[in-house]
Design a protein around this nucleic acid. Structure first.
Lengths: 196, 196
DNA sequence: CCTACCGATCGGTAGG
DNA sequence: CCTACCGATCGGTAGG
């Protein structure tokens, strides 16, 4: 039955990608050997190459999968009719939720993309820059409409995104507050600030 | 003249540490070979070992140097008589300034510390946890005194510190705003929020 | 500071 | 999916 065989094959590749994301986060891309990965998957190192082409391919898959998810969400936000501040909140919530639910891969895409090879490296950088500029444009629009303070929009984007990517170390420790509470806290801090 | 000899020796070690910080940031700790470092310093790989004991030692020096600078500053903040909000602002300004002026080493200490060997790894984790908890205590004090919103203090600490560590990618691009403007923008966003 | 070199490990391939 | 193996490179040492 070829259908099942294909399914199994694709599923095994997904297992490899998933285990790799975990290891790349813990030990970094360069610090993880294909033998480490093979052990985590439960096969010999040579067997990995029946499912993936190279170590580099694994990183490519992770980085572009994550980039595409965020880019697609941004495109939906851009065309809707919300206020700037609602758009920003929506983007923040989306990032927070993905960081909580899928943080191994989001973390790796965020921290290990430098190890991509060309032409993927340049492609990724362009996408990343584009993504940030389009969020900055939303912020600048909000400043013009007096919804937001007149702060430097590119700085605000970097701070927002990095503030959220920082929850990983929290996530791994004992969860003292729920995901919903975490999300609300983060939105309040970023939108309204710390000061009472 | 032994005094001069010692000075030269220590100076060369500083050059090695400095070049290593730059390479560890660009290519990560595992992705940087001692031959890469030797080339950046302008010697053969074997010659590096006249100044340092091991690759691991370089990372230790960078991580604990940075950790000590921030810990010493926090200790000065804790004993002074400012309001909680002034203490938080002071910590933020200190982080921003060090990120701007010394960002190679601060970045490496922040992102590459996982590659430390024991017992340094455990020691570093304890210091890091302690540092964050003491800032959280300042925030909690501010909440009690109604100076700050009643947000989750550990979450606020992680967000603040990561928002600031995110300026590195900005710093490396063309500087459109000055360091002073950057600092003011970041303080406003974190303390007062984005919303007008 | 260099040349010469060590054993270990790397990503990846051949062949079954 | 495995065993067996490749050339390249790793961190580090010996000896001068």
């Amino acid at each position: 039955m070829p259908a099942i065989k294909t399914q199994r094959h694709s599923s095994k590749k997904e297992v490899i990608i998933s285990k790799a994301a975990k290891l790349f986060r813990e030990k970094s891309f360069s610090g993880t050997s294909m033998r480490d990965l093979a052990e985590a998957v439960g096969v010999e190192a040579a067997s990995l190459y029946n499912h993936i082409q190279s170590k580099a391919e694994i990183l490519q898959v992770i980085c572009f999968k994550v980039a595409n998810i965020f880019m697609e969400h941004l495109e939906r936000i851009e065309v809707n009719q919300q206020s700037s501040i609602e758009k920003i909140k929506d983007i923040l919530r989306f990032h927070i939720q993905h960081m909580i639910n899928n943080f191994e891969e989001v973390y790796v895409a965020d921290r290990e993309w430098r190890h991509l090879n060309e032409p993927y490296l340049s492609n990724f950088k362009v996408q990343r820059k584009n993504y940030r500029q389009r969020i900055a444009a939303i912020i600048e629009n909000g400043i013009q409409k007096k919804e937001l303070k007149s702060i430097d929009a590119p700085t605000a984007v970097l701070m927002m995104l990095h503030a959220i990517s920082g929850i990983e170390s929290w996530h791994r420790s004992k969860q003292k507050i729920s995901a919903e509470q975490l999300e609300e806290n983060m939105i309040v801090i970023l939108v309204e600030g710390l000061e009472k």
